[in-house]
Design a protein around this nucleic acid. Structure first.
Lengths: 215, 215
DNA sequence: GGAGCAATCCTGTCAGCGGCAAGATTTATC
DNA sequence: GATAAATCTTGCCGCTGACAGGATTGCTCC
């Protein structure tokens, strides 16, 4: 991002000498940047270190291995997503409108943070996430659950709440991933633009809202 | 799968001598098996060759590189999915019931072919799929579109058909991927069993059907 | 202020990987 | 049965992630 200044002191900025100063954050940011560049889906730790002007062994002092770095990215992603959903939950709207707004926020998050989303969800079920990552993801799911409960109404059965929750979630989740997956039908029919996608999301959300209301 | 017979002639079976006999098919099958074993998400070409009792250079005579092998797996997956959806389309049911059946078939396919699904959808948008892969995926989408059109009814507008199509698709797609992603809320609330998942799918599908009907 | 210590970073090394080239072996074709 | 094509092997290359051991820096406490 910012050019490295040869100056030594200043604030804990970027590369100042032997010590980088803020390598952990730089690693995360640059890794995300690499993943978002021209639709890549992988990156090399050594390449990452190279771009930051650091030796290939440096990252290991901040992340025990590559999986740990990916987990940290996923945690950041869940944090951003949870924040976005909680913000939607706080909007002064009707429960149904709040649910629709949260769906739009979900898709918008995926469009603007494709690397985070891929890292959050694409990984193998074998490797367990860290506690921090788990906490943030539970916070995000908690916000979603609360939104769905409000939309289902106070007298809704658990089964109904469950159905509303997963219908809402899976719709926006599926739409987001299909959008990220390249030149498939979702990108085609929405004109390949974010506005087109959001219009499609609005249509689908409206239909879901009708389904919840017609329950 | 089947044990290698030291016999030489027979049918084009497995490993008979210098020539494998059916290496291409074996590579695909074993790669899928490796990807489905203990929730892995990657595999090594050399390991694959090793398991088939073949040198590390052999696969290159059937797939130009690893991406080509993955593309072939994806093509198989889209073929299977298209077959399943076309079968659902041919069921003697009402349009809505056919759409629900196709949704169940979609999820069932994902549960029984996790490696295919991951390969079909997880890849980077940068690398272009082969023509064969593209054809099969278009066949699958065509079946889905036809199902949605029938469910929307003969007088439905293009916008409505589009909304129904993507609401149905994204729901089952999202549900499938969330299921494949490990121990998230989807697996938790559905008891971790396929039956539990299918019950959840039925609930969500019913709600979607109501949404289509209430249009 | 400086000695000790922990944090951070570097260099060197290792096995494994994907891809390529050149040669060996088998099968198919005429 | 000779020739060509298909298939498989071996050997090599650069790259990768992980690890070990040493260098440099910054912090703490006396």
């Amino acid at each position: 991002m910012a050019a490295k200044k040869p100056k030594k002191p200043a604030k804990p900025e970027k590369k100042a000498g032997y010590h980088h100063g803020d390598l952990r954050r730089s690693l995360l940011a640059e890794a995300v940047a690499m993943l978002e560049a021209d639709g890549r889906v992988e990156f090399s730790l050594r390449d990452l270190a190279r771009r930051l002007g650091v030796s290939h062994g440096a990252p290991s002092h901040h992340f025990k291995d590559k999986a740990a770095l990916l987990d940290a990215i996923a945690e950041d992603g869940f944090r951003l997503l949870a924040d976005a959903l909680e913000a939607a939950r706080a909007l002064p709207l009707s429960p149904n409108a709040r649910l629709e707004a949260s769906g739009a926020a979900y898709v918008k998050f995926a469009v603007h943070h494709p690397a985070h989303v891929r890292t959050m969800f694409g990984k193998a079920p074998s490797d367990v996430p860290s506690d921090g990552c788990l906490n943030e993801s539970m916070r995000a799911f908690g916000a979603l659950l609360s939104l769905a409960q409000d939309a289902a109404g106070p007298g809704a059965s658990d089964k109904d709440v469950r159905a509303v929750t997963f219908m809402a979630w899976s719709s926006v989740h599926g739409l987001s991933l299909l959008w990220l997956d390249g030149d498939g039908p979702v990108r085609m029919t929405s004109g390949g633009t974010e506005d087109g996608l959001m219009a499609l999301v609005a249509d689908v959300s409206a239909m879901i809202t009708r389904a919840v209301g017609a329950r």
